[in-house]
Design a protein around this nucleic acid. Structure first.
Length: 426
RNA sequence: GUGACUGUAGCUCAGCUGGUAGAGCCCUGGACUGUGACUCCGGUGGUCGCGGGUUCGAACCCCGUCAGUCACCCCA
């Protein structure tokens, strides 16, 4: 039988890569906590209906990217392609949205059956934040401040920029879509097949097209801004002044239309030029109608999600974090003769008790001392404890070697090793 | 889902117009002033992604398939 391999688009994260992931997860957890958000966890699998009703029937995600299946009861289930729908469902089901405000965060795997590419995978990790019950632009601004704080923490601020747009409410967008539809219907001859299809389903998405022939008529197309109500404009303007006051730079991108139907009012993306075609590192906005649409009470809502793989790619490109995080051991215990193993393990236990934040590794691979020392250096240890049968029996001591450029070593009574290392470890 | 390019030891790659495979790193054994970081010598490791076909003979040509990269598309 041929060697088993991972399912296409689903990646292993190897020991050499996990430190950077842990770093990312740690930074996110810290920032989110500093803003007072609470963690929520919800299932990877939901009723397919939850996603089709929230994300939108005619979106690409629902039409061709969901992992859907019938379970043994005949229920139609899907692997979550994004987090917001499940979060709303969970929060509403347990009464978290009843006359109260919530600031929630989550982290987890999402699934979309797309063609894999750098920064785009079929199983991918998202960090997400969702807030409920807050109507004003303050919370919108907070979401951008929070993400901005994370970029700062990660040291990638100069590699991302904020783009935003006001897409109005559902009714305003319907009117706009109608006007757009009429406009494009007059220019049927220039539309490509994809655009023609969208003319019937979701004319707004035609504006996303990168087809140069289409771009040329976009200039003459009606503008969403002309259909947006004064109330919505006011919200957006207030948001902009809050961002100005918080000294967060942004670019208004009138073509920014998010791919999920539930968004309204202000939407935003953090984008980078460093990742090729998959440049969106974080995306979100308001979705005031979604809770009601899923059967709850009308509830103000706003949130965002970011792609962990893309952030990891950015961090790897910077090469500043990896090395310092990948150390496995502080102290490495070498066993020159096999009859020293129990003594080595006893010392290990003792050291782990006295130096609770340090890592102690014992070598069981055999081999000569020189190669064991190599392993000690490879593990990033500062000290090696070398057990030798003769020395152990005669004097209950071992050889303590410092693994720096000088490599000085001294004999040391085993009982004194913990205190000595406590002083010497940097 | 569409197109282009790629797929040789654990890693990075070489292999000229087809004649059944090589280097560096890594690992390992040894030498060297004991017990790592320098140097020298030796060794392990590949049915050349997989399956067909053409040929006396294919890593190299053809077809299919799987996987990766990039773009389209989509979005995080």
């Amino acid at each position: 039988m041929a060697k088993m391999q991972a399912v296409r688009g689903m990646n292993d994260i190897l020991p050499s890569e996990t430190p950077i992931w842990q770093h990312l997860e740690g930074c996110f957890a810290r920032v989110v906590k500093s803003f007072g958000y609470s963690e929520i966890r919800f299932p990877v699998v939901e009723q397919t209906q939850l996603f089709t009703r929230s994300i939108g029937e005619v979106t690409d995600i629902v039409e061709k990217e969901m992992y859907s299946f019938e379970d043994r009861n005949g229920d139609n289930l899907s692997l979550r392609p994004e987090g917001t729908a499940g979060c709303v469902r969970a929060a509403d089901q347990h009464g978290l949205l009843y006359n109260q405000q919530q600031r929630l965060w989550y982290q987890g795997a999402m699934f979309r059956h797309e063609r894999p590419q750098k920064g785009r995978y079929r199983q991918f990790q998202q960090f997400g934040v969702e807030t409920y019950g807050m109507a004003g632009p303050g919370i919108d601004a907070e979401l951008m401040q929070l993400s901005s704080a994370l970029w700062q923490e990660l040291g990638i601020s100069s590699h991302v920029r904020l783009e935003l747009n006001n897409i109005g409410d559902a009714e305003e967008r319907r009117k706009y879509a109608k006007a757009l539809g009429l406009f494009f219907a007059d220019h049927r001859d220039v539309l490509d097949s994809e655009a023609l299809r969208r003319l019937e389903t979701n004319p707004l998405r035609i504006l996303d097209s990168k087809n140069p022939d289409l771009q040329s008529i976009f200039d003459k197309a009606p503008l969403l801004a002309d259909f947006v109500s004064d109330k919505s404009k006011c919200h957006f303007d207030e948001l902009l002044s809050l961002l100005d006051a918080a000294e967060i730079d942004y670019v208004i991108n009138p073509k920014l239309v998010r791919g999920l139907d539930y968004y309204n009012s202000c939407v935003f993306e953090w984008v980078t030029d460093a990742l090729g075609a998959q440049g969106t590192v974080c995306g979100g906005g308001r979705y005031d109608g979604l809770v009601e649409q899923l059967g709850g009470k009308p509830t103000f809502a706003a949130g965002f999600a970011m792609g962990a793989e893309r952030l990891v790619l950015l961090l790897e490109g910077l090469t500043n974090v990896a090395d310092s995080l990948s150390k496995r051991a502080d102290v490495y215990i070498l066993v020159r003769d096999v009859d020293c193993i129990s003594a080595a393990q006893a010392l290990g236990k003792n050291l782990r008790f006295h130096l609770p934040n340090r890592s102690v590794v014992i070598h069981y691979g055999g081999g000569k001392v020189s190669s064991q020392l190599k392993g000690a250096v490879g593990a990033g240890a500062q000290f090696a404890c070398i057990f030798e049968s003769k020395q152990l029996k005669e004097s209950s001591s071992l050889r303590l070697r410092k693994l720096d450029d000088l490599g000085e070593s001294t004999d040391c009574a085993i009982v004194d090793v913990p205190d000595k290392l406590a002083k010497l470890l940097v």
